[in-house]
């Protein structure tokens, strides 16, 4: 007991430390180790040391990787951009008290709590080009039916639509929290000075809300970069490789090709990319001097 009492600080930190080491540090070190080797899980053949070969191959000789990186960022850009715009709109709409505002706030959260795989299956049915609901609707309106996920050029966009549908509520929720926390005084001053609603939005709401928006975009971007479930359940990266992102490619490399070394190097590069994106946003926020 005395020992524990004397090291009371270490004692309280220890469980968290053990958890972080066991569940995060060790896997990262092991993945890094594997990323320099070729291994397919064989019990008979130990991992074979390759040096940087996995990395040079990924960066110079694997066109699928470069394409996947580009697609990952395009997907994230479309999804998070739309979510931010729509989320802001919704947050402004439901900010303040009106009849049934609690019900509305609960209802818009529903897409967020659904399971991604179930969402993928449901949207797969909606998108089905021949017997699906969306094309039936388009035909009914006299519009040309779409190939949706069967279209190599647009499949990624249709996947982003699903992400937008699911995650706009989260964006709206964060921005709503930010809106409620805004101070009243500047608005009163602006009103006294005769600023219009648009001017107040452009020169007060947006700048004041900016730190919140950065935080929301950071959260969503990291998530969107890592999107896996809806892509894998809906297209498996197809048609061809038209919707393959870094994460789905990493999954296929490890669990379908069993190239565990190559997959590890890919995941390390991906990890670095996400880290870079996070640091980028953290810096922006710091520059704007707001703490959140």
């Amino acid at each position: 007991m005395n020992f524990l009492n004397r090291h009371i600080r270490a004692t309280f930190v220890a469980p968290a430390l053990v958890f972080v080491i066991a569940m995060m540090i060790v896997p990262i070190i092991y993945t890094t180790y594997l990323s320099f080797h070729a291994w397919n899980g064989s019990a008979r053949r130990a991992p074979e040391y390759l040096g940087l070969d996995n990395y040079t191959r990924l960066l110079t000789r694997d066109p699928r990787f470069g394409d996947a990186v580009a697609r990952t960022f395009i997907f994230t850009g479309i999804a998070v951009g739309a979510e931010l715009t729509l989320g802001l709109g919704i947050a402004l709409l439901i900010n303040g008290k009106f009849m049934g505002h609690n019900i509305v706030k609960t209802l818009i959260l529903l897409p967020m709590v659904a399971t991604p795989v179930a969402i993928g299956m449901a949207w797969l049915l909606l998108y089905e080009p021949n017997i699906g609901a969306l094309n039936a609707l388009l035909r009914g309106l006299g519009l040309p039916p779409q190939d949706f996920l069967g279209s190599a050029s647009l499949a990624l966009f249709w996947l982003a639509v699903v992400d937008i549908w699911q995650w706009t509520p989260l964006m709206a929720l964060i921005l709503l929290a930010g809106l409620t926390a805004l101070p009243e005084e500047p608005y009163e001053a602006a009103r006294v000075d005769g600023a219009s609603g648009w001017q107040r939005f452009m020169h007060l709401t947006l700048p004041l809300l900016f730190p919140t928006m950065i935080a929301a975009v950071l959260l969503r971007s990291i998530d969107a970069l890592k999107t896996f479930d809806i892509i894998y359940t809906m297209t498996r990266g197809g048609p061809g490789f038209a919707t393959e992102t870094i994460n789905t490619y990493g999954y296929i490399q490890s669990f379908e090709y069993f190239q565990l070394g190559q997959a590890s190097s890919l995941l390390i590069v991906f990890f670095t990319l996400i880290l870079a994106v996070s640091l980028f946003f953290v810096r922006i926020r710091r520059r704007w001097g707001a703490a959140l």
């Binding site: 089905e128 021949n130 039916p145 190599a152 499949a155 197809g238 061809g240």
Partner: peptide
């Protein structure tokens, strides 16, 4: 039919079944 590039057998047989 439309969208065959995203069809494995379950999607294909659904078209036949319908």
């Amino acid at each position: 039919p439309q969208g065959t590039t995203n069809m494995s057998w379950p999607q294909a047989v659904a078209i036949l079944q319908q």
